[in-house]
Amino acid sequence: MASDAGLDLVEVSPNVEPPVCRIMDYGKWLYQQKRKAKQNQKSHHSTTQKELRLGPEIGENDKNVKVGHARKFLEKGHKVQFTMRFRGREMMHVDQGRELMVSVIESLSDIAKPDKEPKLIGRRMIVVLTPAKK
């Protein structure tokens, strides 16, 4: 019957009694399975977290370059973590570092929002930005 119809005879369940067979176009079925797998893989987008490091004494132009890199990462859908490390006597000027972090957050506020406020953990100040939903 399969050869008369120009199709393939495919054994679906060989371990049952009697074995189950199906008349179908096997090449077409394989193509559809590959296509389904490809579609499922497309819909799964993994987000990664990128880290950018700043210092409390960073210059304005250097800060703008870091913000530009962060903007590119956020447009691709990645999370961005800004880390500011305070060394030595820089710990006396944590407020200046916080102001710098706030200015970075404000400059990226059109495409990202912070998960939390900048937080000081030991000698590091950390803030994570996530892409804003459009």
Rank of each mutant, 00 (worst) to 15 (best):
S109W: 02
M1F: 01
S109A: 12
G88H: 05
I58N: 06
K63R: 15
N15Q: 10
R22T: 00
E57Y: 08
K36V: 09
V10L: 11
K28H: 13
L129I: 02
Q96I: 02
R22Y: 04
G55F: 02
K50R: 15
F73M: 09
Q49C: 06
I111M: 05
M91C: 07
K50E: 13
G122S: 04
V12N: 06
L9V: 00
T47I: 09
L74Y: 02
T47F: 12
K38W: 14
F82T: 02
Y31R: 13
G77M: 13
A112W: 01
G6H: 08
Q39R: 13
V16E: 11
P118V: 15
H45I: 11
T48L: 15
R22L: 10
L108V: 08
K116T: 11
K134Y: 04
P19F: 04
Q41D: 02
T130W: 00
P14L: 09
S109F: 02
E11Y: 00
I126E: 09
L52M: 01
K79N: 10
H93P: 00
R124F: 03
E60S: 04
R35E: 03
M1H: 03
P19R: 15
S109I: 06
K28N: 09
P118Q: 15
K134L: 10
E51S: 15
M24R: 09
Y31Q: 12
L74M: 03
S13Q: 05
P131C: 05
L100W: 12
D95E: 13
F82E: 01
A112D: 01
Q39M: 11
D95G: 00
